[in-house]
């Protein structure tokens, strides 16, 4: 079966995930002439789980931890069934966060080992990502960017230096042993301190390196990415 890739963008708040998502969307649509579908880490497609997601994310406690995990599994399974899998035969899917951010959240807020959280999530999620892009930036810089944005994009209990430093540490641990997390697919480290254009170029090169974009060579219009 022919299909397009499932791509995930991960990174601390303020590392440029939105710019990468929108830039990748324009790259696919403008250059490769395929319009991607963009989704988020939670899409509220499992209606019965929606309340638990909101509560578990914004009022995390020992009491709601397991319900939150179950709700995440239900929502991601619904997202895969209703959006990702139906889309991939015709277009790439780009998700703004997916699994790594959840592993970091449970590590920081509930002191769960990433491997333990992963096992719980993996029990209900069967579709692996093709490429997880991890945008890496010193949390002091990412926080400065995040707090410079308009609106209410930052949270007082999350977007502070000690928490973000811990989140980055978890990211680093996960990225250092990708084989332990096969649902992440290939993992690419992206230096998010570069200019927005430079970051997008790194992302594009990662896609090319993993044969995840069609060939633009007029002489080889045949299928790319046979592996």
């Amino acid at each position: 079966m022919q299909r397009f890739p499932f791509i995930v963008i991960e990174g601390l708040d303020g590392t440029g995930k939105t710019t990468v998502r929108k830039g990748l969307f324009r790259l696919w649509e403008g250059l490769y002439e395929v319009t991607p579908l963009c989704v988020l880490t939670s899409n509220f497609l499992a209606a019965d789980a929606a309340a638990d997601i909101v509560k578990g994310k914004y009022q995390p406690s020992a009491d709601n931890r397991d319900r939150y995990l179950q709700a995440l599994v239900a929502d991601k399974a619904a997202t895969l069934a209703r959006l990702v899998r139906p889309a991939l035969p015709n277009r790439p899917v780009i998700s703004d966060r997916w699994l790594v951010s959840e592993l970091a959240f449970f590590a920081v807020k509930h002191d769960m080992k990433p491997g333990e959280t992963y096992e719980r999530l993996a029990a209900g999620i069967t579709q692996p990502v093709d490429l997880t892009l991890v945008l890496d930036l010193d949390p002091r810089d990412s926080l400065q960017r995040a707090h410079g944005r308009q609106g209410d994009a930052v949270r007082a209990d999350w977007d502070v230096l000690d928490v973000q430093a811990r989140v980055r540490q978890v990211y680093t641990e996960i990225v250092s042993e990708p084989a332990a997390y096969p649902l992440l697919g290939e993992v690419a480290h992206i230096d998010a301190s570069a200019s927005p254009g430079g970051v997008l170029d790194q992302v594009w090169q990662a896609l090319i390196a993993h044969d995840l974009v069609p060939s633009l060579d007029p002489a080889t219009e045949a299928v790319a990415g046979d592996r």
Binding site: T19, S195, P196, G197, L200, D201, W204, L216, D217
Partner: peptide, 26 residues
């Protein structure tokens, strides 16, 4: 780029700068 310029770093970078600028413009 469609004509075979993807391997040219300067061209690729120019395109990436342009796309990033379009995001900022939005």
């Amino acid at each position: 780029l469609r004509a075979g310029g993807v391997a040219e770093a300067g061209l690729r970078m120019a395109y990436c700068r342009a796309l990033a600028a379009s995001v900022a413009v939005e």
